[in-house]
Amino acid sequence: MTNVFRKGWRPAAVLLLLFILWELAVNFAEVPAWLLPPPTDIIQEAVMGWEGFRMHLQSTVLLSLWGFAIGTAIGLLTAVILHLLPFIRESIYPLLILSQNVPIIVLAPLLVVWFGFGVLPKLIVITLVCFFPITVAALDGFRQTPGELRHYMLMAGAGRGQLFWKLELPYSLPSLFSGLKISATYSVMGAVISEWLGAKAGIGVYMTLASSSFRTDRVFVAIFAIMLLSLLFFGGILLAERLLIKWKSRESGRK
């Protein structure tokens, strides 16, 4: 924890400085609040409007967590299947890359047309943005197992299953966690985008309402909430990584 403060004070100070500059610039140039509100206004709105904002936040957090969980599960499953069945990898992997080239903004309304306004199209959107970094990271991890370890395992008589569970999977964990970190932050973005399309609650809904009524201060509240949420998710993954990969964190801690 002390480490966080020791390393974190510099960016925090820069952030604070930026806010002060922003406040001064807005006041000095007399920019109207609907165009660009000063930070103090935004903080005030965040505190005053907390009651109304809370349910939106809650809904987005829940949606992102579910989406992330499903995306992770599908991402891992895809990676394992593609890894263990090379002929499937050769035919599917290029298509996976294509799937990432479809703009979500275009795809999302289509999903609503197909699946309605329920939770399903939203989860599909989040899963689509989440699973890919995990699949790629896990696949890379599986394939980068050192030849000497693989040779030992084979000489010792390991079967395909043992090779996977005792070597490839544990070896890929650090790489997998890099993918999880990316996906964790994507999941919040995915949730917000999917809420734009139509939902009863969520930061995405709150944001659309705010911008259409020129409540720029609320838009900024939403932006900061999204940033904070992404940061929290990222931190959560970081913590899980520390707990799970003791052998690696100590190693790099030494250097």
């Binding site: 370890l149 040779h151 544990p170 052998w247």
Partner: peptide
């Protein structure tokens, strides 16, 4: 083997 080839985890 020539290298210890221990599993780091």
């Amino acid at each position: 083997p020539q290298t210890p080839s221990l599993m780091p985890w």
